[in-house]
Nucleic acid binder design. Structure first.
Lengths: 349, 349
DNA sequence: TGACAAAATTGGAACGTTCCAATTATCTTG
DNA sequence: CAAGATAATTGGAACGTTCCAATTTTGTCA
């Protein structure tokens, strides 16, 4: 049944008007008479017509395709799933539909999916770039006038907008809180040093220490993979230092969980014997034991904002690069422990 | 710069051949001479040509759009994020790209996004239907010959393929395990009774009890929203019974977590004083305290299988409804406790 | 080399829409 | 009611590709 599809011409025929009029009705033009509009709409419903955006798009400007692309580096990370939901909310209600692709940190895969999306005529792209993404990878996109908004990570040298969380301020607040609790040997654990996010967070750590008139010891900065296993490795190394840290800020929550694991392996109780602060506030942070003190970044809100920024650029027809930093806030839970002087009083006196 | 785009005609011109030949090269036809192919490909690279699938699609059959749709009811649930990743893996490597949309359980939203996807010419759809989805909602899809694969949930009466997990067997195994530990008053907690998933799991619960020659008490079946809050409410009601249960199988992991919360509110220790088993094996299940005993369903694998099934139907050009049930397995952790007779021995003797 | 087959290439129509310029219908108003 | 203004409608070209049938080129062999 219904093998060959219904076109605007079929509608025109059935409604006794021209295809041009039907087209006008389709785009809700004020030029068409109310009665005609009603009749045409009725026929459209009756015949089960479905609009062919491909055909429309062929005639119109590329930027009216009503498709945006979103590519993330790790959708299994709930941070990005939330981000995607935020994006989806605003693009859906703007009548857009989103291509979503996962790169799993592979730049090759990323190149492929971006190429594929271009072929399909996306009118904009939201990208959380895979590690190692080069500015040249984005060059053709911006050259052809497709707005791009980078989220979470930046790619240096690319003339595109970006929306990243305030890594510097977040880490600074975390360190300040620990100092306020009485810690002065605070480690910075985890993360790959060759990323912009790492540099920003590290700088926040350093600045906070300086502000509080504490020395910055490079030995206390231990990089590792930004994963649970990486966290275990990092705390192992930190505990080998002749003068041990009493607290740590971690590159992200996954590292923080690993650090807790590593501490327990050394018969140390995270939150009691050692203070730990993470970054991201993933869902598990609040249910873990001890509940993780961390920096919350509201991924869904970031997704919404990224989408709004992108739509703004699409509608403006031109995309002047704009860099937005999204504010973050410290969420205090159990893993950072109570003030250290209480414990010192107990154990030393 | 580069405002107007490069078309197949520009390529033809530059390479000194006709547009037909370029088209042949584009689709890797064996009809074209090697030397010509090489020359054309070189020009394509030089001019930075990007294939316009919209235009191609206009001429070709609808089912060659290389776009599939995937719509889920809750992407913030990591189960669905994993599922989407599984789908993405196989469609990506088949040269497809996926529209992903989140309905947040709204059938209106679902209707909108499916309509939108149709307009864009998807060649197939993977759908985890929102609650209350009617077979009529899918009718136009299948009428126009677009293959649909339902995942996780079925919609009765719809002539589409489905891939669901073995709810009956999963719940049966859970109950058997609890009976094996010595429980005989086992509650079934959470879930909306008007869903197929609920019926299947409940039936598994009932059949297991019958098989083990235990009575089925309807009072022990307490439905609720399939959420953490719902779980709290359900266990509250169950604890009011004159003859309390000593264990519970839960509709899903979220409910199970709520049940644990509720137990603690009553000074009962989940895993010690009361056995709890969930369903789904979400990521948090292994890190929670106590770690949740649950039924594992491998969402990523389901995503892969669903995508394979869909691609098969797209390529076959016809979609005879196929119902696949994906096997599940019990993962024993702490929340179901040790065998009850040990505890009884301690407390009673 | 002539005749035929096979290989390679080609122009034009078609896909379903939008847009423009042009036409026709309807309304105002003196 | 004529005539100008405005409202409503319309045919045809265009978008970038694929497909078909036809044509040209190249190869084979007696």
């Amino acid at each position: 049944m219904g093998k060959e599809r219904v076109t605007v011409i079929d509608i025109a025929h059935a409604a006794g008007v021209s295809k041009s009029t039907v087209s006008l009705v389709l785009q809700a033009s004020p030029l068409v008479n109310e009665a005609t509009r009603a009749k045409v709409n009725a026929v459209i419903r009756d015949l089960g017509y479905v609009y062919n955006r491909g055909a429309a798009n062929l005639r119109q400007s590329n930027s009216k395709s009503k498709i945006i692309g979103i590519v993330v580096n790790d959708l299994t990370n709930s941070f990005f799933a939330e981000l995607a939901v935020g994006v989806d909310m605003v693009v859906q209600s703007a009548g857009y539909v989103q291509f979503l692709a996962n790169t799993a940190e592979s730049v090759d895969r990323q190149r492929e999916v971006i190429a594929s999306m271009r072929e399909h005529g996306i009118s904009g792209l939201i990208l959380s770039p895979a590690r190692g993404t080069d500015a040249a990878d984005l060059k053709p996109l911006v050259a052809s006038g497709i707005p791009v908004v980078n989220v979470v990570r930046q790619v240096s040298g690319a003339k595109v907008s970006s929306l990243i969380s305030d890594n510097h301020a977040g880490m600074r607040d975390a360190v300040r809180h620990l100092v306020g609790l009485g810690h002065h040997r605070i480690a910075f654990l985890g993360g790959f040093p060759d990323t912009a996010v790492f540099s920003e967070r590290l700088q926040g750590y350093r600045d906070a220490l300086s502000d509080m008139d504490l020395a910055v010891h490079d030995e206390l900065v231990v990089s590792s993979a930004p994963s649970r296993a990486g966290g275990v490795a990092a705390i192992e190394r930190a505990l080998l230092l002749r003068e041990r840290p009493t607290a740590a800020v971690c590159f992200n929550d996954a590292v923080a969980f690993g650090v807790c694991d590593g501490l327990r392996a050394h018969r140390l109780d995270p939150g009691e014997d050692f203070a730990v602060i993470g970054f991201d506030d993933v869902i598990e942070a609040q249910t873990a034991v001890p509940a993780l003190t961390t920096i919350s970044v509201d991924p869904q809100g970031m997704g919404r904002r990224a989408a709004q920024l992108l739509l703004k650029q699409i509608n403006a027809g031109r995309a002047d690069a704009e860099a937005i930093v999204s504010s973050v806030r410290l969420v205090v839970r159990q893993s950072c422990g109570a003030a250290i002087d209480k414990r010192e009083r107990l154990s030393l006196l």
